[in-house]
């Protein structure tokens, strides 16, 4: 089902592309799909458990707490309370940051 998919219209890399890629290495695309799923699922589970996830060569995912704060609706002047929230941030590894920074191909698409 997924094997014939091409990206002439959209330019997003998705799970399917990664599964195809791994399928070449593992023999079947079904195996590729499982491994790609597990890769992101294990990171996800770890983050939900509050762990920091550090992937060498990519960066580290970290959950940070954002305390509750008051905001004003500028239109009505009403004060609102935004409750405590958690955010997920990715801090890139030095390697990946320089790979992005030094890519000549990256140009604004418009």
């Amino acid at each position: 089902m997924a094997s014939g998919r091409h990206h002439s219209r959209t330019s997003s890399l998705t799970r399917i592309d990664l599964a195809d890629e791994l399928g070449k290495q593992l023999g079947t695309s079904a195996a590729g799909k499982k491994v790609v799923h597990s890769f992101f699922d294990e990171i996800r589970k770890s983050l939900i458990a509050g762990e920091r996830v550090q992937i060498h060569g990519l960066g580290s995912f970290r959950v940070v707490a954002k305390p509750a704060r008051k905001v004003c609706n500028p239109k009505t002047g009403k004060k609102l309370m935004v409750p405590d929230q958690k955010a997920l941030i990715l801090r890139l590894s030095n390697k990946m940051r320089s790979q992005i920074r030094n890519a000549d191909m990256i140009r604004p698409k418009k």
């Binding site: 799970r15 890769f39 992101f40 191909m105």
Partner: peptide, 23 residues
Amino acid sequence: CIDRIQARIVEALQNGDRVEIRG
């Protein structure tokens, strides 16, 4: 496999593409 996943992600981004992992 993980090396490949990471390499493909970097390649895509260097090409100016997005990487979208649902969920």
